[in-house]
Amino acid sequence: MMLRMEGLGYRYGQAAPVLREVSAEVVGPAVIAIVGPNGAGKSTLLDLLAGQKTPWQGTCAVQGKRLDLLRRDELCRLVAHVPQHVPRDVPFTVEEVVLTGRIPYGVGLYESAEDYALMEQALRRTRLEAFRGRRFVSLSGGEQQRVLLAAALCQQAPVLLLDEPSAHLDPENQALLWELFAELKKSGHLVVVVTHHLALAAQNSDRIWLLDRGRLVADGPPGEALEPRRLEEVFHVPFYWHGGDDGRVFLTYGR
């Protein structure tokens, strides 16, 4: 069992829960998109899986290990998280940011040769070799996003949790990103992505977790979970599936 969530819930202090009774299981490598309207609890769910927040109720486990029982470095060897908001003013180079992914493997003063080899691999996979010496702060939002993804890859965790990774990317880089997710799935990773790009999620993910007001209202393949009537109930706009000449299907929306 790659990932298991049982009755997961979260609330801020004594306020009403923002996430409740979320349960799901993922047995093997996959690309899963978490979708839902603003405030549905998508980022909160990702934070719980990343150990950034402590669940109010329920548990989650990766590869059979309960996350709440692990030390932080142990957890980060299983789960690599790229949050939605990261300070963009860090004064380090691209290489130095990517190498932060090696921290869970020890905080000796210097990185090992293996750490540098994995950094090179991550830079190659995210097409960042040309940017290696550039200061992180001097990059565009999209480039910074790719650097953070490279750091997560460098972490060598089987589960990658990405919060709106395509938010700052142009269409070409969005397509490349989803291709990378497919590659990562082939190499045995579970990629869980929070996204508002429903059409891209529908085309490229194996499974959709649709959240609404803190509850998991649909869990299944895109064609099943993104059923237009259900989407309209959740997002309050009509959705349409279209068939393309090449057999591909597209999801659009609008009044």
Binding site: Q52, R72, D73, P83, V86, P104, Q155
Partner: peptide, 16 residues
């Protein structure tokens, strides 16, 4: 070094 990126990033890299 990694704490200077902010707590969220540091926590995600295994720092307590």
């Amino acid at each position: 070094n990694v704490i200077s990126y902010g707590e969220t990033w540091a926590i995600g890299r295994g720092v307590d």
